[in-house]
Design a protein around this nucleic acid. Structure first.
Length: 110
DNA sequence: TGCTTGACGATCA
DNA sequence: GTGATCGCCAAGC
C-alpha cells in the first residue's frame, strides 16, 4: 500500500462515500477521478475492494443499473439483498428507479 | 515475455 | 432501437 495504489484508493474512498440508499456506476467513479481510468479499471478496483469490508461495492452497479457484480459477492442474491436492505428496490437483478437513486460523485461531492 | 480475460462504456453499423 | 466492435489498464496464466 503506501506509494500509489493507483486510483484504487480513490475508488475505495468514493465508494465509501456513497450514502446509504444510493448507488453509482463505474463510469461515474472513473469520470470523477478524471477519466484517468476506464470503467473496466473501476471494476478491477472493486474486484480487490469486494474483499474490503469498508467498501460497499454492492452500491456500485453498471451504467444500466444492473447488478453485474452480484456474482462476486459469493451469492447471486447477496448484492440484491444488501441493496434492498438499504431501501433500494431491485427488479430483475436491476436497480429500480436507477436514475432516482443514482449518486454521482462528481455531482454530489464536487 | 506475451496473450487472454475482466464487476464497463461509448460509438459505429 | 438493437447488435457488435474497439478502447481502457491491470492481473493471471
Amino acid at each position: 500500500m503506501a506509494k500509489n495504489q493507483s486510483f484504487f484508493a480513490d475508488v475505495y474512498e468514493v465508494v465509501k462515500l456513497i450514502p446509504r440508499g444510493r448507488v453509482t456506476s463505474y463510469g461515474a467513479i472513473g469520470a470523477y477521478l478524471g477519466a484517468k481510468s476506464s470503467a473496466r479499471m473501476v471494476g478491477w478496483a472493486m474486484n480487490q475492494a469486494h474483499g474490503m469490508d469498508d467498501v460497499p461495492a454492492h452500491r456500485v452497479v453498471n451504467r444500466s443499473g444492473l447488478l453485474t457484480g452480484k456474482h462476486c459477492f459469493g451469492s447471486p442474491t447477496r448484492m440484491q439483498e444488501l441493496l434492498e436492505s438499504e431501501g433500494i428496490v431491485i427488479a430483475n437483478d436491476q436497480v429500480c428507479h436507477f436514475t432516482s437513486v443514482f449518486w454521482d460523485p462528481s455531482l454530489e461531492l464536487l
